[in-house]
Amino acid sequence: MNNSDSGATAQAAEDAASPPGMRIFQLPTGAYETPAALAFQGGSFRDRRQFAATAVLVQHPEGDVLVDAGFGAHAEEHIRMLPSFRRSPHHFGMTVSEQLDAAGYDRSRLLGVILTHSHWDHVSGLDSLDVPVLVTDEELRYADHNRGDRVFRRVAAGHSFRTYVFDGPAHLGFPSSHDVHGDGSVVILPAPGHTTGSVVVVVTLAPDRRYAFIGDLAWQLDGITRGAQRPLLMRLLADSDPARIRQDLARVTALAHHLRIVPAHDARGYDGIPLLVPDLDTGWAS
């Protein structure tokens, strides 16, 4: 990224706005443990990392969206559908559906689930969510041919799909964009490196409160703070286009002073994002 691109990116970050009343909440659904050595280059086998499976609820005056769906009610069954080398021990918490109900959330507000990509630990929770799935045609094609992860095809049955295209201009250093509400508050950016239809979701609550939910562009914050890619073996096993991963990591790293970067599987990235709990004044989530 050259200096002029960096300047335009910084200006776009500073100029961002959003409608009053927007809020976000984290909905942790569980975790699994992985050595840091398998998560990023330079990590240690002695350093055990908790890989979070956390969805995010974005409240917007025109309708709310979830970013990913976390572990579902049938997550243990979903794990058994995976290749044996991916069946690590998992800890399960409340599903997204259970957390919405416990908070008294009005589900009529929910427009759908934006998937960062279709891997099982991002979609398992669709098994108990009766809402549309917002996804690109590219990711649907990827999921249809992904023999190593059949969970999406199982949980997607019965759901309606709202496919979108990147019909908007270059945004924050990415070549194109899709504006969910048309006001710049929730913008999806193409990042087809981990899977061929992976995306980054940028949420703006205020000019100085912005989040980039980057899915599995990096598994841990070390991918941003240290510029550490996945180890070579993990890149070969997990990524569709490692070169595109490097390119998009550079784009995201350039945003780190302007946005809160949240890798899907690093619980530290969600620090400060409130949990969804009942609000006695409004009668639903706060």
Rank of each mutant, 00 (worst) to 15 (best):
P207C: 09
R251S: 14
P192H: 00
H91G: 08
A264L: 05
R150D: 05
S128H: 12
E98R: 13
V277S: 13
R162W: 12
A31H: 12
R226T: 07
T54Y: 02
M81N: 02
A39N: 02
H181V: 06
F213M: 11
V252N: 05
D183Y: 03
M81W: 05
P20L: 03
L134G: 01
P132E: 11
I188W: 03
L189W: 01
A31S: 14
R150E: 15
R46A: 11
L276A: 15
R260Q: 04
V200K: 00
A212W: 09
D130C: 00
M22S: 13
L100T: 11
G173N: 08
R226F: 08
V262D: 07
R46V: 06
D216C: 08
P83V: 11
G93M: 08
L129A: 05
L233G: 00
A212P: 05
S240Q: 13
R48S: 06
A206H: 06
H257W: 03
Q11R: 15
G173P: 06
E98I: 10
S97P: 00
A264S: 12
A73L: 14
V200I: 15
H119F: 14
R23K: 15
R226P: 05
R150G: 13
A238F: 11
D106S: 07
V203A: 02
E76C: 07
T54K: 04
S4H: 06
L27S: 12
H119V: 15
F40W: 10
Y32W: 09
V203F: 03
T253S: 13
G184P: 01
A156S: 15
E139T: 11
D279T: 05
S124W: 10
D64W: 05
D144V: 00
L110Q: 04
S240W: 04
V151E: 00
